[in-house]
Amino acid sequence: MLVATEVLLGLIIVAGLVALETRRLRTSVISLAAAGLFFVVASFLFGSVEVGIGGIVAFAVLIPLLLWALKRTISEDVTIRVRPGPNDIFVLISAVAFIVVFLLVLFPLLGELPSLPPEPVEGPVGLSILREIFVLVAAAAGVWAVVRKVGRRGE
């Protein structure tokens, strides 16, 4: 099973590179959707049903939102021919070096993680659901407020 998830992770990397390097933005979004699909399948393979369903919800919102954004604006990446400057290369190399050092420090610590975490203290059953609903409503209200502002710009 680990081999299957590693293959899926490799496919996510390929889809991500295609999404970043293609000229047509619609193709980029479709590649991102493919990466999301591979991620959801890998989540189910890992036995993480909640994360898989969360991934489906996340990409079901994100992909139509990106397609809607492209419909309102442009669908072609005109900056694709711009070459990265020396500053970009320096930042990229620094970030990669940081990640490599971070992983080298992290790997020995991963083996020391406890296998059994302490049991979480649960409140009343309905309270956590209410809290989740409140967070989702607050997020939806925020997005609606910004979208409303965008729509009224011409007035």
């Binding site: 990397i13 991500g16 492209l70 990446d77 900056t79 694709i80 970009d88 990640i99």
Partner: peptide
């Protein structure tokens, strides 16, 4: 592979000039 995927994401953020990318 996770680290490589993260680096690909950083590449998109640092090098690309398009907001969608």
């Amino acid at each position: 592979l996770c680290a490589i995927l993260f680096i690909v994401g950083i590449y998109g953020v640092v090098v690309k000039k398009n907001l969608i990318k």
